[in-house]
């Protein structure tokens, strides 16, 4: 896999189009349509803190640099605001590509640069699996415990509790068993 390192520039003849094809098959996104105009990054909500901006992400798909894409911090700081695809003259669905890369990163067990994200996602899924809904109080509590930020949000939580807005018990939906069934058939199913 070609990578940029300090001693040798990227060798284009060693780059193949397998990542580009994969993205095309899996996400229906053809990066060849990119005009490299930069309107995506120009409007991106978080471009100023991304390490790799939307246009660069599309370029990396063309260059087949999967490793860089799986390890980038932007993968987890993107808020999916959809502005990039809305402004793109070629309608390239960058949020879809991000979703796909996130799934791949999880599957390949690539450690996110910020650990708290994975913990959060596990907890989120867990909440839905158990109750069918997202219960934010237990979620926030567990997240802060697991990331060892014990006192984070404590003040907020206290205020919310005394206002009667914090339900420490997560209410379940009527047919929770069905939700768990859905999980069993899809996400939790062992990859065949």
């Amino acid at each position: 896999m070609a990578m940029v390192d300090y001693y040798r520039p990227l060798r284009l003849n060693q780059v193949d189009s397998s990542l580009q094809e994969e993205i095309k098959q899996a996400c229906g996104v053809d990066v060849e349509l990119c005009l490299e105009c930069g309107k995506c990054t120009g409007g991106c909500s978080n471009a100023h803190i991304f390490d790799l901006t939307p246009r660069k992400i599309v370029q990396l798909v063309k260059l087949g640099d999967e490793k860089r894409l799986l390890n980038m911090d932007s993968l987890w700081t993107c808020v999916s605001c959809q502005l990039c695809v809305d402004r793109c003259p070629s309608h390239i669905d960058i949020p879809r590509v991000m979703d796909y890369m996130r799934e791949k990163a999880r599957k390949k067990n690539v450690k996110a640069q910020r650990q708290s994200i994975e913990i959060f996602h596990d907890l989120m899924l867990d909440s839905i699996r158990k109750t069918g809904r997202v219960a934010e109080a237990p979620l926030a509590l567990k997240h802060n415990l697991r990331t060892r930020q014990y006192l984070k949000d404590a003040d907020l939580g206290r205020r919310m509790f005394f206002k009667g807005k914090l339900n420490p018990f997560a209410p379940k939906v009527k047919n929770v068993k069905q939700v768990q069934d859905l999980f069993a058939k899809t996400i939790d199913k062992k990859e065949g």
Partner: peptide, 9 residues
């Protein structure tokens, strides 16, 4: 949430 939280299946 799931759609964009790496649970995109």
């Amino acid at each position: 949430y799931l759609l964009t939280c790496s649970a995109y299946k």
